[in-house]
Simulated assay, not measured.
Amino acid sequence: MNAEQPIQLRWFKSSYSGGEGGECVEVAADRAAIQVRDSKERGGAQLAFARDAWAGFVADVGRVRSN
């Protein structure tokens, strides 16, 4: 039996997260998707977004922030 080894994700905290321990979002990329989790609940649920959906989201956020 050839079981796949789980991928070790490298998580990055959002540059917009405050240093006071408030709302913090972390993201990590794997082969198929962008993973998102709450940095205060690292063992909890995480969301997975298709790479193209994530790219569209980030682009839209950038446009909103620049207005």
Rank of each mutant, 00 (worst) to 15 (best):
L47W: 12
P6E: 15
G18N: 15
C24V: 07
I7R: 14
A55W: 05
A45T: 12
Q35T: 06
E23A: 14
A59W: 12
E20A: 13
V36F: 11
D30G: 03
V61E: 00
L9M: 06
L47T: 07
A3W: 01
W11L: 06
A55G: 07
V61A: 15
D60T: 12
A28Y: 01
R65T: 01
D60G: 04
D60Y: 03
V25M: 11
Q35L: 09
A50T: 02
V64H: 11
I7P: 00
G56A: 13
E41N: 09
D30N: 09
W54T: 08
A53V: 15
R10L: 03
G21W: 11
A59S: 14
E20K: 06
D52N: 10
Y16W: 10
A3V: 15
A50S: 07
E26I: 00
R10Q: 10
A59L: 11
V27I: 06
R65N: 08
M1L: 00
D52K: 07
D60R: 12
Q8F: 06
N67G: 15
P6R: 12
G56I: 03
V27Y: 07
L9A: 03
V58R: 04
A28R: 09
C24A: 08
Q46W: 14
V27S: 01
E26V: 05
R31P: 05
E4R: 08
R65D: 06
N2Q: 14
E41K: 04
R37W: 10
G18C: 04
V36A: 14
Q46Y: 15
V25L: 13
A59P: 08
A33W: 05
A50E: 13
R51F: 09
S14I: 01
D60E: 00
S14R: 02
S15Q: 08
K13H: 05
W11R: 00
G19Q: 03
D52E: 14
K13C: 07
I7Y: 11
A28G: 10
E41Q: 05
M1S: 13
V27R: 03
Q35D: 06
Q35P: 00
D38N: 00
S17K: 03
K13F: 02
R37D: 05
D30M: 02
R63M: 10
M1G: 14
I7Q: 13
